[in-house]
Computed example of a mutant assay.
Amino acid sequence: MRGIAGALAVAAAMVLTACSGGAAAPSTGDPAAEGDGSVAGKRVIMVHCGDINPWCAVYNKTIIDGLEAEGVTVEYLQDPFDVALQIQNLQSAIAQRPDLILLAPTDDNSVVPSLQQAKAQGIPVIVSNSRLAPGAEDLAMTVDADHGSLGKFAAQNIVEGLQARGLEEANIIALAGSDTTATSGERMKEFKAELAKYPGYKLVEERNTDWDPAAAGRIATQLFAEYESKGGIQAAYGMADYLANAVIQSAVQAGIPVGVENDGLIVTGSNCFKVGIDNIKAGLQYGTGTQTPTAEGEWVVQWALKFLADGEIPPVNLNTVHRVTAENVDEFAAECSTS
């Protein structure tokens, strides 16, 4: 996968350390470098999003397969974006005292007490597919994608699409994942910052979907109707390609043209799926970004193995992501079609 084999350079976020209050050293090492110890027989418990979500299903399988291939024993405790169940699973994991806990938070803040408990008991935790809540940066290590860049890419896709249509003013809607994690928060922060460079383009609605395409479709339909008498909606950001696809389907059903060539709605995704690649090729979606479940899963595997072998990794490790449009879609088609 491009995010692993093609670019192992790590962009490190700045985090505060509890002991010094200063910025943590950037992570610039190669996570695939061999450690000094054996990982065979080590035990990992994964507390992750449930396989009911298509991205999570591939992500989780990639991690489990990668760790087990190196002789690591993996137990997977899944929750379908259920905060209470995740805390229950996390408590169970802590009680079993594994060599490492992998945690993909459903709510960044809700897991803090459990992370404090794990640290007090000397149980290491790697948080993935999100970031630690402010003030909790010293409680665990982070292995994640560069979500800020994904949000920036989404805004750039919308701006380019609107400019290609010759529009100087536009109403834009955003169908986000969930505001309980940095996954959505970082994307929306950078999306808004990039969009602010173009005052004529207004983000008029931002709604959470809990990563549910059915919810995204319903919300888009409602907003199309609501804004029909307010100048209409000219562009939409679906935070995952399957959310963007739901927006496209809702527009088609409402009789709204889609795509630059149709002088229609400009739609972008933010992390790629096969449906998004197909929509880009068909001219229905302007673009997306990577952060594929296989690439991100492999990224977690490499850092988890390094920790199990060495006993330490840098506190924050961000994987490189890439912007995808019709101009380079063929380059990323295979990578983006694993889910």
Score class of each variant (00 low, 15 high):
8 L>R: 12
11 A>G: 10
13 A>I: 00
16 L>W: 00
19 C>T: 13
22 G>W: 13
24 A>C: 10
25 A>E: 11
28 T>S: 08
31 P>E: 02
31 P>T: 02
34 E>T: 11
35 G>M: 01
37 G>F: 01
37 G>H: 10
37 G>M: 06
44 V>R: 07
46 M>D: 07
51 D>T: 12
52 I>H: 08
53 N>H: 15
57 A>F: 14
58 V>I: 14
58 V>W: 05
60 N>H: 12
63 I>K: 02
63 I>E: 06
65 D>I: 09
67 L>W: 11
67 L>Y: 07
68 E>D: 13
70 E>D: 13
71 G>P: 01
73 T>D: 13
74 V>I: 09
78 Q>C: 02
79 D>A: 13
80 P>I: 02
81 F>Q: 10
83 V>F: 08
87 I>W: 04
89 N>H: 15
90 L>A: 02
92 S>R: 05
93 A>L: 08
93 A>F: 06
94 I>S: 07
96 Q>V: 11
96 Q>A: 11
97 R>N: 14
98 P>C: 13
100 L>V: 05
101 I>H: 13
104 A>C: 10
104 A>G: 11
108 D>A: 14
111 V>Y: 03
113 P>G: 11
117 Q>S: 14
118 A>C: 07
124 P>G: 12
126 I>H: 02
127 V>G: 09
129 N>D: 15
129 N>H: 07
130 S>W: 05
131 R>T: 11
133 A>V: 08
133 A>K: 03
135 G>L: 15
137 E>H: 05
144 D>I: 15
145 A>F: 07
146 D>G: 03
146 D>F: 09
148 G>Y: 09
152 K>Q: 12
162 L>K: 00
166 G>H: 03
166 G>M: 04
173 I>G: 05
175 L>A: 05
176 A>N: 12
180 T>P: 01
180 T>F: 04
188 M>T: 09
188 M>G: 04
190 E>D: 08
194 E>K: 00
195 L>P: 00
197 K>G: 06
198 Y>F: 00
204 V>F: 02
206 E>N: 06
208 N>E: 14
211 W>N: 09
212 D>G: 04
212 D>M: 08
214 A>S: 13
218 R>E: 09
219 I>V: 14
220 A>I: 09
220 A>G: 07
221 T>W: 13
222 Q>Y: 05
223 L>H: 10
223 L>T: 07
226 E>T: 12
228 E>Q: 10
228 E>G: 05
232 G>C: 13
232 G>F: 14
233 I>R: 03
239 M>I: 15
242 Y>T: 02
245 N>Q: 04
245 N>Y: 02
245 N>A: 02
246 A>V: 01
248 I>R: 10
248 I>N: 05
249 Q>K: 14
250 S>K: 12
250 S>W: 14
252 V>G: 06
253 Q>H: 14
253 Q>R: 15
253 Q>F: 12
256 I>R: 11
258 V>W: 11
261 E>K: 14
264 G>H: 07
264 G>T: 08
268 T>Y: 05
270 S>P: 01
273 F>H: 07
277 I>M: 02
279 N>A: 15
282 A>P: 01
285 Q>M: 15
288 T>Y: 06
288 T>C: 10
288 T>D: 08
292 T>K: 03
295 A>G: 15
299 W>E: 12
300 V>T: 12
302 Q>M: 11
310 D>V: 04
313 I>T: 09
315 P>E: 03
316 V>L: 05
317 N>Y: 06
319 N>P: 01
320 T>M: 13
328 N>W: 04
328 N>K: 08
339 S>E: 06
